[in-house]
Design a protein around this nucleic acid. Structure first.
Lengths: 246, 246
DNA sequence: CGCGCGCATTGATCGAGATCGACAGGCAAG
DNA sequence: CTTGCCTGTCGATCTCGATCAATGCGCGCG
C-alpha cells in the first residue's frame, strides 16, 4: 500500500514526489523513472500557457512560479503561488486555463504527461493521492478569495507575508508561531501586487507602513524579518482556523 | 466500468449522482442505497459549519447554497455557489474549512459519509471521478479570484449574471450564446454582494445601471432577462476562454 | 385598515486605493 | 566615468466604491 503522507521522500529528488515513492511501490517507480527528467528553466519562462497542451507534469524542486490570468486590457491576477514541492499538472487534462510562469529560476522534476496519466489510470489509488492534493489547492484558492474579496490593502499584505512565512517555515521544518520569523520574498513588488489585487504603489506603501509600525523589518528588499509573528498574523485579520492562506 | 460523463442519470434521483449510477455499476449502488436518504431543508439551514464533522455528503437536487467564511468583525465572503447537481462533501475529510448555508429551501440526496468514504476506498476509480469534479471546482474558484481581484463593480455584477445564466442554461439544456437569456436569481442582494465582494448598495446601483443601459431587464427583483447575452458578457471583460466563471 | 418589518433602491458624503508624476538606487553597457 | 534602464519609493490628486442616511415597497399580522 502506498503511503499518503503529505511529504514523500524519494531516492532521487530531495523533494516529495506527489504520486510515487521508491520506498513504497517499486513498480510505479519503474513506470515513471523512464519518463522522468530534470530541467532548470530561467526566470520568466512560461511553464504552461492557457489553453496550450502540456507535454510534462512537474514537481517544483527549487524556485517559485505563479498561476495567473491576464485580461485583454493588461490587468493581471495571480490565482496561485507555486513553491518547492508543489505540483504543476492537472491529471486527466492536457491543458490549463491559466498561465504558469517562473518568477525565479526553477528546477523541475518532470514526467511525461501521457506516461503519468497512464500511471494514474493503471494504479487507481494514486487518484486518491491526487484528490487530496487538489482539495488542498481548492482550500487555498478559496482562502485567498476571502483575502481578495474582503480585506484592506494592509490586511492583504500582512496575510501574504504570514502565509508565505508559514509555507517557507513548513518547508524548512522550523516553527513560526510565537516568535520571530524570516521570509525570503521570491517575488517582485509587481508580482506581489498581481497576487494581492493591488497596484505596486499601494503594496509598496503598505510595506513601508508595516515597517514603520515595527511589524516587519526589511534588511533588503527581498528579505523580510517578522519580529512578532502573532502580531503580524493579527494584522491579517485571520479568523478561527489559522491554516495557511496562500 | 463506471461512466465518467459529467451528468450521470440515476434511476432514483432526477439529478446526476456524482459517484454511482444504477445503469453502470449495480454493486456500488447497493452499497450506497442502504446509506442514501432524501432530505429537504429550509432556507437558512447550515448544511456544514467550518470545522464541524459532517455526517453526510450530499448532492443538491433543488435549491441553492453558498460556501462562505465570516470574519470575526462580520465581514463575509462567499467563495462558492452551489446549484442543483453540485456535490457537498470532501472525500477523505470529515470537516470543511468553510460554512455551507442554504439560501433557499434545498432538496438533498444524502449519503452517510463513512459509507461514501468506504465506497471510494473500495472502488478506487471513483476517486478519478471525484478528482475531475474537484479540478472543476478549483478552476471555478480561481476564475472567481480574477473577478474579485481585478474587476470593477460593474464587471463583477455582469460576470456574475453571465456565469449564472450559463450554469442555469446548462442545467436546462438551453442555449445562451447569441440571443436572449433568462436568469432566476436564487440569491438576495446581500448574498450576491457577499459573493461579489461588494456592498449591497453598490450591487444595487450597478444592477440599475445595467438596466438603464438596456443590458438587462428586471420584471421582478429575482428575475433577470438578458436581451443580448454577448453584450452582457462583453461588460464582464471576459478574456479568451469563455468558460463558466462561477 | 394601519402598523411593523425586512429587503431593495436612491442620495449625499467620505475615504481607501488608483492614477499620474517625480525621483533614488542598482546595474549593465558604452 | 556617464548613460540608460529597471525597480522601488514617495507625493499629489482623483475616483470608485464604502459609508451613512432616507425612502420606497411588498407582505404578514394584529
Amino acid at each position: 500500500m502506498v503511503k499518503l503522507s503529505p511529504i514523500v521522500a524519494c531516492g532521487t529528488c530531495p523533494i516529495r514526489h506527489n504520486a510515487v515513492c521508491a520506498k513504497c511501490d517499486a513498480e510505479e517507480l519503474v513506470i515513471l523513472e523512464q519518463a522522468k527528467s530534470y530541467k532548470t528553466l530561467p526566470a520568466g519562462s512560461r511553464l504552461a500557457e492557457a489553453g496550450e497542451t502540456l507535454s510534462y507534469f512537474s514537481t517544483i524542486i527549487e524556485g517559485c512560479a505563479t498561476i495567473s490570468r491576464t485580461l485583454e486590457d493588461g490587468r493581471r491576477q495571480t490565482v496561485g503561488l507555486l513553491l518547492p514541492s508543489d505540483f504543476i499538472g492537472r491529471p486527466g487534462r492536457a491543458t490549463s486555463p491559466f498561465d504558469v510562469e517562473a518568477l525565479t529560476e526553477v528546477k523541475l522534476c518532470r514526467f511525461e504527461r501521457t506516461t503519468f496519466e497512464q500511471l494514474v489510470t493503471d494504479t487507481p489509488h494514486i487518484a486518491t493521492r491526487l484528490l487530496t492534493m487538489t482539495l488542498d489547492e481548492l482550500d487555498a484558492a478559496r482562502d485567498w478569495a476571502v483575502v481578495l474579496g474582503r480585506m484592506t490593502a494592509r490586511e492583504k499584505v500582512a496575510a501574504f507575508l504570514v502565509s508565505l512565512a508559514r509555507r517557507q517555515a513548513g518547508a524548512r521544518g522550523t516553527a513560526t508561531a510565537g516568535g520571530r520569523a524570516v521570509v525570503h520574498l521570491p517575488l517582485s513588488r509587481e508580482a506581489m501586487s498581481d497576487h494581492l489585487g493591488l497596484t505596486i504603489e499601494t503594496t509598496s506603501r503598505q510595506m513601508t507602513a508595516l515597517r514603520k509600525d515595527g511589524l516587519i523589518e526589511t534588511p533588503t528588499k527581498r528579505e523580510i524579518h517578522i519580529p512578532d509573528f502573532d502580531a503580524l498574523a493579527f494584522e491579517a485579520a485571520e479568523d478561527d482556523d489559522g491554516g495557511p492562506i496562500v
